[in-house]
């Protein structure tokens, strides 16, 4: 079971501002989903290698060759606050 503190912690980890009612609903829903996911514990997987790729491809690499870049205005075309060729962000308060 996860409690409110866990939910708040996870929301902070992933930068989501949740309202009080959202936090509460999230707690309930996550617990109900996790209860289902916990059925996984019953599956015997000792000595079973995890699969992180469904295909058995290995060693895919590219040659070290420079390719064209985006023009700067294109790189910044979607920026919410472009400033003189840079991406502007509000002040950073160290956590």
């Amino acid at each position: 079971m996860i409690d409110r503190k866990d939910v708040e912690h996870v929301a902070r980890l992933t930068r989501l501002a949740l309202t009080e009612p959202e936090l509460e609903r999230m707690r309930e829903q996550l617990n109900s989903i996790l209860a289902h996911l916990d059925t996984l514990r019953a599956v015997p997987t000792e000595g079973v290698e995890p699969t992180s790729h469904a295909v058995d491809v290995v060693n895919v690499m590219r040659e070290d060759e420079p390719a064209p870049c985006l023009p700067r205005d294109v790189a910044l075309a979607n920026a919410p606050d472009p400033s003189d060729g840079l991406f502007r962000v509000p002040r950073i308060i160290e956590e």
Binding site: L37, V48, E49, T51
Partner: peptide, 13 residues
């Protein structure tokens, strides 16, 4: 969770 699920995935495969 993640590790376990990836092992279950191996069983499915």
């Amino acid at each position: 969770y993640y590790g376990k699920a990836q092992s279950v995935r191996t069983l499915v495969r």
